[in-house]
């Protein structure tokens, strides 16, 4: 095997999904002459920000070999809790709304993480329970009614701009950068990969695996809390049915981004591309006026094709 061909394969393995994304963008810009406008690109980034933030937390969880099905419900719940502090004619301070929303998300994540790590229960089951309970709590919190009339400073989180860039995009991109550094360079991240790669050997080499597992669900809960602030501020009300099905979009983005559902492999960069692929697809199919029926079919096909291509290239380079 000579050097150059090895590099090509490695390139494909590492950047295959990125190429899929480029191809998708090129195809879209041929099909729609408004796709490549700054307005549309800003829209895409805005539209992916919520799924993107949830996917960051989901990436940490899936790298440890776990899954978090509760993120959609927890997002809605944190939204209700946070909004209740900044609603009405005499809203509380902004910091209370943000703080309590984040705390609600973190607590939900910590509870799931504690049960999964302490009692060694399957994450699928525990977070499925949280999915249901958090949604119920959401309705209980304000007797099933939405919480409208939020303060303007709170709405800024979802509708404001900084130097012309929408706040959700600012928040999302900063989180991508922070988590990318964290997952690439910190010691913590090596433990996360180790737990997902082989939990037993991670434990025998001295990693506190329970604490690592606990922490990733906490991070996922925190991400749901952050996403809830944006979602609530965008829709101007905390809605009890918000975030329905968001967990599946997040899992799809993470998997398309090359993170393995069996754990040990994955990156925030890959997830970022995965999020963009799904976002560009949704945006493009809307621009082209594709019907709802075809929209779902095409989305499903592209998700599977992207992962198929990815597994194809990585298998080839492994052999």
């Amino acid at each position: 095997m000579n050097g150059t061909s090895f590099n090509t394969r490695q390139f494909f393995q590492k950047y295959g999904i990125f190429l899929v994304f480029i191809v998708l963008c090129v195809v879209m810009s041929f099909l729609s002459n408004v796709f490549f406008t700054s307005m549309n690109i800003r829209n895409i980034l805005m539209q992916v920000s919520i799924n993107g933030i949830l996917s960051i937390g989901m990436t940490f969880v899936i790298i440890t070999g776990g899954i978090d099905l509760s993120v959609g419900s927890v997002t809605a719940m944190a939204g209700m809790v946070g909004a209740s502090f900044v609603a009405g004619r005499h809203p509380g301070p902004l910091v209370a709304g943000i703080g309590m929303g984040l705390v609600a998300g973190i607590l939900a994540g910590a509870l799931s993480g504690f049960i999964i790590a302490k009692f060694r229960l399957p994450a699928f089951v525990v977070t499925l329970g949280m999915l249901s309970s958090a949604r119920g709590y959401c309705q209980l919190y304000n007797n099933g009614m939405p919480i409208p009339n939020l303060s303007d400073e709170f709405l800024f989180i979802g509708q404001g701009h900084i130097y012309g860039i929408p706040m959700p995009v600012v928040i999302y991109l900063s989180l991508v950068v922070i988590s990318w550094f964290c997952l690439r360079y910190s010691r913590y991240s090596r433990y996360v990969y180790a737990v997902g790669g082989n939990e037993k050997s991670a434990r025998t080499s001295g990693v506190n695996t329970a604490r690592i597992i606990f922490s990733v669900y906490l991070i996922s809960g925190l991400c749901a809390g952050i996403a809830s602030l944006i979602l609530t501020a965008r829709t101007t009300s905390a809605l009890t049915q918000a975030g329905n099905g968001y967990e599946l979009d997040a899992i799809a983005a993470v998997v398309v981004g090359g993170t393995s559902l069996s754990g040990g492999v994955g990156s925030v960069g890959g997830t970022f591309i995965g999020v963009l692929i799904i976002g560009v697809l949704n945006n493009g199919l809307d621009l082209l006026g594709v019907s709802s029926y075809w929209h779902q079919i095409i989305k499903g096909i592209v998700i599977v094709l992207a992962v198929l291509l990815d597994s194809f290239t990585s298998k080839r380079s492994n052999s």
């Binding site: 829209n43 539209q47 829709t235 918000a242 945006n283 809307d286 621009l287 709802s292």
Partner: peptide, 25 residues
């Protein structure tokens, strides 16, 4: 011009409308 589902959802409708405002100016 367009007719599509947003599944009763405010957030989904917002995304859809943003996209339509781009494609139909």
């Amino acid at each position: 011009l367009e007719s599509k589902t947003a599944n009763w959802s405010r957030n989904e409708a917002m995304d859809l409308m943003q996209n339509w405002l781009v494609s139909h100016h």
